[in-house]
Amino acid sequence: MRLRSLQIILWVAATAAVVAFAAARWWPATEDSAAAASAFTPTFALADSEGRIRTTDEFRGKFLLVFFGFTSCPDVCPTTLSEVAQVMDDLGSEAGSVQPIFISIDPERDRRLGLTDYTKAFHPAILGLAGSEAETQVAAASFKIFYEREADTTSPDGYTMAHSPGLYLIGPDGAWLRQFTYGTPAAEILSDLQSRL
């Protein structure tokens, strides 16, 4: 009988130890990742169409609307860039506080096809950037976005790009603020921006 009580006590102690260990491992981890998610500062250093390296630092003081895409994308990219163009038109006199940026995830082909005439066709305010493959990967990683080249014989040049289609808002201090998921109407993006300006 005494042995039985001892067994129970030991089991309770063992369970408590496991719970305490799990809690110690979990609590700090979740707090850390939550803090990281709210505080991260995406960066890029990528060439514009004239070959000048543009970095996040030069846009401090402005809100950035950043979209990763490729100019041979017939459906998703024009839809999002059209929304960005509408937002820039509707911002009116406040448009100067917002810099829309298109980052090519297909930089070699986009440089060849021409980046500026593409972005300008949507809105003259949109800055197109196309760096090297490595620089683009670094920028995408800092925004925590994914892209991948996929072989596809039914696409131009035999490949297409799969990518995160969101639109990312960066604050004047360079910190990531939020993403607008693909398909967010221009009016919703506009009112979010206006509430911050």
């Binding site: 994914f146 297409t160 995160s164």
Partner: peptide
Amino acid sequence: VQDGIASMPH
């Protein structure tokens, strides 16, 4: 658009 990634299958 699946798991936050847009792709364009044939």
